[in-house]
Simulated scan of single mutants.
Amino acid sequence: MKTYLFRLTFPVGAHFGRQGIGLEETQETVSSDSLWSALINAFALMGEAGDVLHEMDGESPPFVLSSLFPFGPDPDDQRKRLYAVPRPMTSPAVHDAALLQRAGKELKKIRYLEPHHVLTWLAQKPMSAQDLETVQQCARRLARPWSSEAPEGWFQTSLRPRVALDRSSQNSSIWWCGVLHFRHDAGLYGLVRVRDDPWKSRFEAALRLLGDMGLGGERTYGLGTFGVDGFVPLEKEWPELRQAQKTTRRLLLSRYFPNPQELPELGGVLEAWDFEESRGYVVTGRYATSLKRKRLIFLREGSVATRALLGRLVDVTPDHGPALGLSHRVYRNGMGFWFP
């Protein structure tokens, strides 16, 4: 299997919901299980969903996805492209413990790092005060919202008005929806570890079809449609990986749900982690339903382990789904994508 990087650009904006009340909030990332579920709907329109699910439910899945993260131009050199990688949840190694205490609060504010800094962080190579300052300066350039004070930012969030009508009285009420707009040379990128053709070609075809279908919420209003660019081997886009320090630690770039064989060893493998709940409604093909799928608790992006863990698909079909007209099972993807 080979790892590829692909870029998605959203010309009319997108809405990627966040947990909470209302639709005002939107985030600049898409989780791997949400992206995978959207791709399965694209495969369904291609008539290949059953084949994909059969192949995925094994020890050697045909492809494993990361979540989607922001990319954009370098503020110092607009011709250069930067990629935001989640900061590992472990603490970096330093020459002086007091140094980490002084810089701890600022380091915790960092959300993203550049790939080569992630590798240094995971390798536990001791950093000096100057090294930590360099890491922080580089991190400030990543995934910044744009404004009049920061015109080099990668994206901006706006609120669009919507009107809801009461079914019985027809009285109207206004509400607001958050919309994410990327600049023309920014967007989201993802990584996929995929078998050679025909699976690589099938994955690309489904991804391009999904671009026409749309990703995220508010697709009725045209949001979420995207173009696909730069489907290239990872080493070509991140050449620094070839000279990177070897490390046994792995950074989770997807959501992860352990399979039964991995459960007993999690305590000895995981070094730092956090959880995130996944919930929502069932979407089948191009149609949303009013059926709620079962909730799951995933390990989230940024978790660190001493070795890669496989994970598994999880059946989240509602208990009474078939009785309510649901004609198929519903799955979420908890397979781990680990870096490097």
Rank of each mutant, 00 (worst) to 15 (best):
R219M: 10
P322A: 09
S37P: 02
S37I: 06
G58K: 13
F231E: 07
C177G: 11
S168D: 13
M127V: 00
N333C: 15
S173R: 14
L191P: 01
L223F: 15
Y4H: 04
E152D: 12
D77H: 12
K105A: 15
V283I: 13
G302S: 09
S303N: 05
L313Y: 01
E218G: 03
N171E: 14
W273S: 12
R183M: 07
L82V: 07
G211D: 00
S168Y: 13
Y112I: 00
Q101F: 09
E301R: 02
R111D: 03
C177H: 10
W175Y: 15
A139I: 01
N333D: 15
L266H: 05
W36Q: 07
G13F: 08
K80A: 13
F203E: 01
D212R: 15
R193N: 10
V330M: 02
D51Q: 14
C138A: 15
A150S: 12
L113R: 05
E240C: 14
D212N: 14
L39E: 04
V163P: 01
E152P: 01
S173Y: 11
D197A: 13
R242C: 11
P318Y: 03
L310R: 15
L266G: 11
P151T: 02
D131F: 09
W121N: 08
P145F: 04
S172V: 11
G58F: 12
Q243E: 12
S37D: 06
D131V: 04
T306R: 15
S37K: 03
M335H: 04
A150G: 00
L223I: 03
A323Q: 15
A123P: 00
D196P: 05
L180S: 08
S254D: 02
M213P: 07
D212S: 15
A103S: 14
V30D: 01
G22F: 07
Q101P: 04
G72L: 01
R219N: 07
L252V: 08
G224S: 02
V12Q: 13
T317D: 08
M213D: 03
S31W: 09
V118G: 00
E25C: 07
A244Y: 03
